[in-house]
């Protein structure tokens, strides 16, 4: 009989307790992130207001591809490594430069451990994020770690066209092309000068022979 009344008492007290908690929850801030309005590209913006545990994406998460053009040698290895051809690279000649990262130390080729040399530059570096399957083969193949996966996953756009990531802007392309034609002209001029010199030397030799 004691258990019977204990049951009734427990029924009321536990319901009382539970209802106070659920009622209190109504007045505590909501945790919903209203996605299209709120920028979720970085955890930092969400974390300001977020009450719970916000781990974010792990370091080795294969998100949307990003290219650091200051490290790119336009070698096209990533384009060849891509199994579904979602990377398109066009390149032209440029000034021969040694790559260096932010603090001035030279960038090494990851495979040969030699200093990376840039002889060509990209005029087009497109990655089709709609086609990309995030396999990470391009990242593995890149000798200078210029192409890599970010831990971003938010990529909702209105059309497929907007899903193509273009890393080289038209301005950069124009300057690169201009520079390339200059280099070519210089090279042609050099060649012509060399040829002329050779011819002159030949003529000299001929004259000496005679």
């Amino acid at each position: 009989m004691g258990a019977y009344f204990q049951n009734i008492k427990d029924g009321f007290t536990t319901a009382f307790e539970g209802m106070s908690i659920s009622f209190a929850t109504m007045f505590v801030r909501k945790e919903t992130v209203q996605y299209p309005e709120v920028d979720i590209s970085s955890n930092a913006t969400i974390a300001e207001k977020y009450k719970g545990s916000l781990m974010g994406m792990p370091e080795n998460y294969r998100g949307i591809l990003d290219v650091d053009l200051s490290l790119c040698t336009a070698c096209q290895i990533c384009q060849k490594a891509c199994p579904i051809d979602c990377i398109v690279i066009d390149n032209i000649k440029c000034d021969k430069t040694k790559l260096s990262d932010g603090d001035g130390s030279p960038v090494l080729n990851r495979f040969t451990q030699k200093e990376a040399l840039k002889t060509r530059t990209v005029t087009r570096f497109d990655i089709n994020a709609a086609k990309c399957m995030y396999c990470g083969l391009c990242e593995k193949a890149c000798p200078t770690s210029a192409i890599r996966h970010t831990n971003q996953f938010e990529m909702n756009r209105e059309s497929q066209e907007e899903l193509i990531l273009r890393f080289v802007s038209d301005d950069v392309k124009a300057t690169a092309e201009k520079r390339a034609s200059e280099i070519e002209a210089e090279a042609a001029a050099k060649k012509a000068a060399k040829a002329k010199k050779a011819q002159e030397e030949k003529a000299k030799e001929k004259g000496a022979e005679e």
């Binding site: 009382f16 307790e17 106070s20 908690i21 009622f23 209190a24 929850t25 007045f27 505590v28 009450k51 719970g52 545990s53």
Partner: peptide, 15 residues
């Protein structure tokens, strides 16, 4: 009073 206690408890961040 109980609700007030609950609200204060729930305001504490999880981590």
């Amino acid at each position: 009073l109980k609700v007030r206690v609950s609200i204060n408890e729930q305001r504490i961040p999880v981590n």
